[in-house]
Amino acid sequence: MTMTTADSTGIRVTRDLVLLLARIGLGVIMIAHAKLMYDFAGGSIVGVGPLFAQSGVPLPAITGPANVLFEFVGGVAMIVGVGVPIVGVLMALNMVGAWVLVHTSPLFSMDHNGPELVIMIALLSLVLAVTGSGRFGLDHVIVPRLRGARTAAGR
């Protein structure tokens, strides 16, 4: 059974649309989480440090604000599809840290502190890191131009 060009084009468009939806979903979740931490910290990015200290996160004055900024900027980057391989790996690592340091309850715990969400975010982040942004992301436009510039420069 052979696939026609129209079939392969349809599959490619479907794949790119699914990647777009996955990126938007992940980005919205990350931005919303950053906003939630910001709000819990009294509307102050510096106030996130004490929240991290309560959870026993190392260097909370640095890691708290850095985490909020990363989740916001990384969420926006996912939505627009820029730096998806790098941001995806960093988000996955961030979620592993959240699992180890904060979401320590057993799976499906009634205290709402289980690791299910952070595990799913980490896995989706890794999938997007290895698949890339698809044609509906800025990486699709930027990466070929960067490769062309390197080739033209003789690298």
Score class of each variant (00 low, 15 high):
residue 112 H to A: 15
residue 39 D to T: 15
residue 49 G to E: 03
residue 103 H to C: 13
residue 98 A to D: 08
residue 141 V to Q: 09
residue 60 P to G: 13
residue 44 S to W: 13
residue 122 A to Q: 04
residue 75 G to R: 01
residue 55 S to C: 06
residue 126 L to R: 06
residue 98 A to E: 04
residue 108 F to E: 06
residue 140 H to Y: 14
residue 92 A to Y: 02
residue 50 P to N: 09
residue 32 A to Q: 11
residue 68 V to R: 02
residue 53 A to G: 09
residue 148 G to M: 06
residue 118 V to R: 09
residue 108 F to S: 13
residue 126 L to T: 07
residue 89 V to R: 01
residue 54 Q to K: 14
residue 41 A to K: 05
residue 146 L to N: 07
residue 50 P to D: 08
residue 70 F to A: 10
residue 23 R to A: 05
residue 144 P to R: 04
residue 42 G to I: 10
residue 51 L to I: 15
residue 80 V to A: 06
residue 105 S to Y: 07
residue 123 L to V: 15
residue 138 L to E: 07
residue 105 S to N: 10
residue 35 K to E: 13
residue 96 V to R: 04
residue 44 S to Q: 13
residue 36 L to W: 15
residue 45 I to H: 02
residue 92 A to G: 05
residue 103 H to Y: 12
residue 148 G to R: 10
residue 60 P to A: 15
residue 87 V to S: 04
residue 51 L to K: 04
residue 47 G to E: 06
residue 114 G to V: 06
residue 152 A to Q: 13
residue 132 G to N: 04
residue 32 A to V: 11
residue 43 G to L: 12
residue 47 G to I: 07
residue 116 E to D: 13
residue 98 A to H: 05
residue 73 V to P: 02
residue 149 A to G: 04
residue 132 G to W: 00
residue 36 L to N: 11
residue 53 A to Y: 07
residue 152 A to R: 13
residue 26 L to C: 08
residue 89 V to G: 00
residue 31 I to G: 00
residue 97 G to Q: 08
residue 128 L to R: 05
residue 36 L to R: 08
residue 46 V to P: 02
residue 107 L to T: 05
residue 130 V to I: 11
residue 73 V to F: 13
residue 54 Q to V: 07
residue 35 K to V: 15
residue 115 P to Q: 12
residue 73 V to E: 01
residue 126 L to M: 10
residue 112 H to N: 14
residue 68 V to H: 00
residue 38 Y to I: 08
residue 83 G to M: 07
residue 58 P to H: 13
residue 130 V to M: 07
residue 59 L to V: 14
residue 77 A to H: 00
residue 96 V to I: 14
residue 55 S to N: 12
residue 29 I to Y: 03
residue 45 I to N: 02
residue 75 G to W: 00
residue 45 I to D: 02
residue 56 G to P: 07
residue 149 A to M: 14
residue 136 F to Q: 01
residue 37 M to V: 10
residue 92 A to T: 05
residue 73 V to A: 11
residue 140 H to C: 04
residue 143 V to R: 09
residue 92 A to M: 05
residue 47 G to N: 06
residue 127 V to R: 03
residue 56 G to Q: 10
residue 150 R to I: 10
residue 99 W to D: 08
residue 42 G to R: 10
residue 141 V to I: 12
residue 104 T to R: 14
residue 147 R to V: 14
residue 137 G to L: 01
residue 63 T to I: 15
